[in-house]
């Protein structure tokens, strides 16, 4: 049994976008803070109460709100952030689709929206509009730009089905 005392730090290893990182954290530190401190500032802090989804990342293949995961819980996990989607300077098809369909206004929710879309399209490669709307129900766009986000996800689904794009991870 491993016991970390309240004032102690604990060493954790994270595999972020395919690369290994080691860092020391207090048990109370949240995954979102640690990711941002390691330079992954595409992971946004929005509401900080697991409502808005701006902090969504993929952890061990599933989308999670990183403001409600302790960094120590994520020890040895594989994390994918929005920074890990583009390959060799080429945007991921979901990113392309958001660009082409103007799936963002202020852009604050965008990394979370894109990561949740990534998970949604892995689960349901050919979603209906209703499934898309349900799929992003944990992500809020305060510009209320949902129409184009939904269009972008639809288009991303088509792109992904045509190109057999290899998913990272």
């Amino acid at each position: 049994m491993k016991v970390v005392q309240p004032d102690e730090k604990v060493k954790i290893t994270l595999k972020i976008n395919g690369e290994k990182y080691e860092t020391e954290v207090e048990p109370r530190r949240l995954l979102v803070h640690v990711l941002r401190e390691l330079g992954f500032t595409g992971v946004h802090i929005g509401c900080d109460t697991s409502n808005c989804g701006a902090c969504t990342v993929i952890m061990n293949g599933k989308s999670v709100k990183s403001c409600t995961v302790l960094a120590v819980e994520a020890n040895n996990a594989e994390i994918l952030t929005v920074e890990g989607l583009a390959k060799d300077g080429k945007l991921h098809p979901i990113q392309e689709a958001f660009w082409e369909h103007h799936g963002l206004q202020c852009g604050y929710c965008t990394p979370g929206m894109i990561m949740e879309s990534y998970w949604l399209l892995k689960e349901k490669p050919n979603p209906t509009e209703e499934e898309i709307r349900e799929g992003i129900s944990g992500n809020l766009c305060r510009c209320t730009g949902y129409q184009n986000i939904v269009k972008a996800i639809k288009s991303a689904a088509e792109k992904l089905s045509q190109t057999q794009y290899p998913h990272p991870q």
Partner: peptide
């Protein structure tokens, strides 16, 4: 928002 300090146990 940070949680308050606590210890952590992995059984």
């Amino acid at each position: 928002m940070y949680p308050p300090k606590f210890g952590y146990v992995i059984p």
